[in-house]
Amino acid sequence: MTDLASLPYRPCAGVMLLNRDGRVFVGQRLDSTLEAWQMPQGGIDPGEDALEAAFRELWEETGVARHHAELIAEAPEELQYDLPDDLVGKVWKGKWRGQRQRWFLLRFLGEDGDIDIATAHPEFRAWRWSDPADLPELIVPFKRALYTRLLQLFAPHLG
């Protein structure tokens, strides 16, 4: 049994991608049987800048090229979540207790046709645009508080 408190948090970058209508990109994870939707996010490689990681993850998960997104804001604080106990040994080979995330609000400059979730290593089985206020209800319960805080932090830039 792994001592949860001794495990570190995985460094991660997340993207809230906002379209022209003020709606946010969410994808339904391929590896989840839950009706869970989330925004693009993933690990920051050693030595990688968090914003660079955010643009890389956006490309890897949604097919959205960098020229189709522009930075609006960066969350002023790092956010983190803990995995539920039953997932700790199963996710990320048991190396992390959860994630500490740098979040970026990006404006989507392209058209829906510029989004392609059938990427080299697909993570989503479906995607849609959602109202920002709906995000906490769409995400898995253990990330709900993080999404709620993120909405507070980005509120000045949302509708």
Rank of each mutant, 00 (worst) to 15 (best):
L153F: 06
P141S: 11
F25D: 00
P136G: 02
I117A: 06
T2C: 09
R125D: 08
D21N: 14
W59F: 15
W129C: 11
F25A: 02
A50V: 04
R128H: 12
E74S: 11
T119Q: 02
T62M: 01
A118C: 10
D116T: 02
P136K: 07
L51G: 01
Q38C: 11
L153T: 06
R56P: 03
T33P: 09
N19K: 12
I44Y: 05
H157P: 04
G98T: 02
A126W: 09
Q28N: 06
E70F: 01
R10P: 02
G47I: 07
E111H: 13
Q80S: 15
E78G: 05
L4M: 10
Y9T: 05
A133P: 01
Y147D: 08
K90F: 12
D131C: 09
A69D: 10
R97S: 06
D49W: 07
E52C: 10
Y81D: 01
F154C: 05
G43H: 10
R125T: 08
L109P: 07
A120T: 12
A126N: 13
T148N: 08
L87Y: 08
E52W: 09
V140N: 04
A145T: 09
L150H: 08
L105A: 03
L34V: 08
L150C: 12
F142A: 04
A155W: 05
A36M: 01
G159D: 14
L106T: 01
R107I: 02
E48K: 05
H68Q: 15
G42T: 03
F124C: 03
L105G: 00
V88R: 06
E70M: 14
F124W: 11
L105T: 02
P8V: 04
E137D: 14
F104Y: 15
R10H: 09
R20C: 09
Q28A: 09
P122Y: 06
E111C: 10
E70K: 14
P46I: 05
V15W: 00
T33V: 10
R128F: 02
P8W: 05
E137I: 01
L135F: 08
F104T: 01
V24H: 00
Q38T: 15
H67P: 07
D21Y: 10
E78L: 13
L138T: 05
G43K: 10
G47Y: 06
S6K: 14
M39Q: 13
A5K: 13
L135W: 07
A145C: 03
G63I: 01
E57Y: 00
T148Q: 13
L138G: 05
D85L: 09
